[in-house]
Design a protein around this nucleic acid. Structure first.
Length: 271
DNA sequence: CTTTGCACCTGTTGGC
DNA sequence: TGCCAACAGGTGCAAA
């Protein structure tokens, strides 16, 4: 579920519902996520008002006057706002309860997600220190990607999925951006031409921007918490389409593994 | 330093 | 229909 567009959609959807509200309590039902949820959280947050919600890479950052609550959705996480007395389901691990009886509820069946409390400056934290630029900002451009790709033996797909190069390009959108750019995912990063770097940066920006505009691959109603199939799913050109005909040329879409992640491309459209 | 592969989990899918 | 292996949108980390 959560690639960058979903995280951004969550961020934008939650903000108007929660910003300006004070926390009244915190319920932790299962603390074992990727890392244990800090046990002091129920003593740390109540009484403090949520000031803002930020996104950096796929991390959501809930800003309070005394620190940031970090939430990562991992592979299967989702957030919703619901009445605090709504019975939690099996994988609803955490509630952040706000004044007004509404709570922010984290669901995460696979528990690859994370909830952390950060007091230090964000740029000093180990998780943020080595992150590359945001793909949608101007400091991610063709010159940057070209220079970072020099001397690199890895495939171009692995390069753009590397958080230290650029953040937020997940497995779905990596395949999609490479299709849009007409580049084969197996292409060695070091052999990327200046022109291809230009095309690829534009494609990454375009694919992510459009997915955000459409609310990601899953649409979520933050109040009731109901998820329904999103509009971007029907826009996917290659991801999940192994064995089917390319929409552009009719050639059979190929599927292979790159770095243990399934990868899709059109052998005719992508050189 | 770069590259590779594993680990962490549960739910769903596809082949037999 | 039922069973079980394979696989799933992420990413930090250890080891080579």
């Amino acid at each position: 579920m959560p690639e960058l567009p979903e995280v951004e959609t969550s961020c934008r959807g939650l903000a108007p519902l929660l910003i300006g509200k004070p926390v009244t309590s915190v319920q932790i039902r299962k603390a074992r996520l990727r890392w244990p949820i800090p046990t002091e959280l129920p003593d740390t947050l109540p009484g403090y008002t949520l000031r803002a919600i930020h996104r950096r890479a796929k991390y959501l950052l809930f800003e309070f006057d005394h620190g940031h609550l970090l939430i990562h959705l991992g592979m299967s996480g989702s957030l919703r706002v619901c009445p605090v007395d709504l019975t939690p389901e099996k994988h609803d691990h955490v509630d952040i309860v706000f004044a007004g009886q509404q709570c922010l509820r984290l669901r995460d069946p696979r528990r690859f997600g994370a909830v952390l409390w950060l007091v230090e400056a964000l740029h000093e934290h180990a998780l943020f220190k080595h992150l590359g630029p945001e793909p949608l900002l101007d400091d991610f451009d063709a010159n940057y990607l070209y220079s970072k790709s020099r001397q690199r033996m890895v495939s171009i797909k692995q390069l753009i999925m590397d958080n230290r190069i650029v953040v937020g390009v997940g497995n779905i959108y990596a395949s999609e951006a490479l299709f849009m750019a007409g580049l084969r995912p197996t292409h060695k990063a070091r052999r990327l031409s200046k022109q291809a770097a230009e095309q690829l940066t534009l494609s990454i920006k375009q694919v992510l921007a459009e997915a955000i505009k459409l609310g990601g691959t899953t649409l979520r109603d933050f109040v009731s918490g109901e998820g329904k199939p999103g509009y971007f799913q029907q826009k996917l050109q290659v991801y999940g389409r192994g064995g089917q005909a390319c929409y552009r040329c009719g050639t059979c879409i190929k599927q292979l593994n790159i770095g243990q992640r399934s990868t899709f491309y059109c052998p005719h459209c992508q050189a």
